[in-house]
Design a protein around this nucleic acid. Structure first.
Ligand SMILES: [Mn+2]
Ligand SMILES: [Mn+2]
Ligand SMILES: [Mn+2]
Ligand SMILES: [Mn+2]
Lengths: 152, 152
DNA sequence: TACATAAATTAGCCGTGTCTAACTTTGCAA
DNA sequence: TTGCAAAGTTAGACACGGCTAATTTATGTA
């Protein structure tokens, strides 16, 4: 059975996390997943507006690697969330709130990529990993990335 | 409109990613999300078996911060995936494959946490961020984390 | 041994994010 | 000016991973 005896938590170097603390961590990850779609979309929309003057669903779909109906549905969710403004059959634009979110996301994305590059990760891998990692980096960790970067 | 003129890609320092490369990155993130549930479960099950001798759904649920029916459903998915073995109403155990996955996940989790700690991130934040980040760290990036750690 | 309580399961619901097929709208080129 | 191809939307399906309410099973205690 290998049932461990009751032992004093304090005798360990690495404190065991309480079940509650652990659950809290998983809850935060689940929460991050809920914002992920919005973050990736507004970030991409901002990039498209910058590089092409407008963000068209067909381009969003191509770069996200999803089909156009998926974009239509998600854009409409973003509109409901107040992040996006648009008229039917036309290009998509960001609201003030959407722009603010996009700016924050782009900054965070850039920092994560730059940090991975500074570690010697190659460009393609850095970009790919950053696309997922960015959504799980707390302000504190982001600050640590930045600091480590400037101290390089 | 600020429509950008056509310009040579090569004149830029940071190469623009092709839409295909970008789409590939998002596809990899979506794929990672599909393995995430399995990874977190087998990792936790392995920890519970180690520290308590067995992994009971009630404990899995408590530490994951979800309700018992969610655990029942997901455990049954893991069984279908060949990661878990168990009899109804009894504790959960890992198959060979499940143990292998759990070991890989625990190792990756430990490396990510240790790396964040080495950056000066505090323990709670390191654990919380690692819980999400771990699923998006490629072998290459993980190796970079490790290397940077030993060089500390 | 019986039964109360805890643990686990089942049934059925929901929102998210993806898809295909079918349609509407737009806008360009003849 | 009109008609066709491309873009966009709608409708409807599906898997996932959450939930609650109700039921079933296991178990320790009286
Ligand atoms: Mn992303
Ligand atoms: Mn990004
Ligand atoms: Mn995790
Ligand atoms: Mn983990």
């Amino acid at each position: 059975m290998t049932k461990p005896q009751s032992h004093d938590r304090e005798t360990f170097e690495h404190m065991e996390r309480t079940p509650e603390a652990q659950a809290e961590g998983f809850a935060i990850v689940r929460q991050a997943h809920e914002s992920e779609m919005a973050e990736d979309y507004v970030e991409l929309i901002a990039e498209l507006i910058e590089t092409r003057g407008e963000a068209r669903p067909v381009d969003i779909a191509e770069r996200l690697g999803v089909k156009p109906p998926t974009v239509t549905k998600n854009i409409s969710r973003l509109r409901t969330a107040g992040l996006v403004r648009r008229e039917r059959y036309r290009a998509v634009f960001l609201t003030e709130e959407g722009q603010a979110l996009a700016e924050a996301c782009r900054r965070r994305h850039r920092i994560v990529v730059a940090f991975l590059l500074s570690l010697g990760v190659d460009e393609e891998a850095a970009e790919r990993d950053a696309e997922g990692i960015e959504h799980h980096v707390s302000d504190e960790t982001l600050a640590a990335f930045e600091k480590n970067l400037s101290q390089k």
